[in-house]
């Protein structure tokens, strides 16, 4: 994993300033969605090798939630966007 992450608000910062939540692909279902849908959201992961999107929070900086797009095999980082701008909503 790259040692530096480019926060869109704070600039290039060390990776340790960020909290990593995990996969940004699952979308939170509607409150009354079926149990299988919730099970899929809470527990199941595609877990691909290659290009992924992950939720990171810049806890030691702007505290914004970010979407880090990167390769989990080569460790290349393609881009970091604010989760709100990425149209993530409540995930």
């Amino acid at each position: 994993m790259a040692s530096l992450i480019s926060c869109p608000h704070c600039g290039t910062r060390p990776k340790e300033e960020f909290f990593i939540r995990g996969d940004a692909t699952p979308v939170r279902p509607a409150l009354m969605a079926a149990e299988e849908v919730w099970h899929d959201y809470v527990h199941l992961r595609a877990n691909p090798r290659g290009r992924i999107r992950e939720h990171w929070q810049h806890v030691a900086g702007c505290r914004r939630w970010l979407v880090v797009e990167r390769d989990n095999f080569t460790h290349e980082v393609f881009g970091v966007t604010d989760a709100a701008k990425a149209g993530e909503g409540a995930r």
Binding site: M1, K15, E16, R49, I52, N72, T74, H75
Partner: peptide, 14 residues
């Protein structure tokens, strides 16, 4: 663990 999704058999210096 390092804490991020990874298929690489190498870790981070931090």
């Amino acid at each position: 663990i390092d804490g991020y999704s990874s298929y690489a058999q190498r870790g981070n210096l931090a």
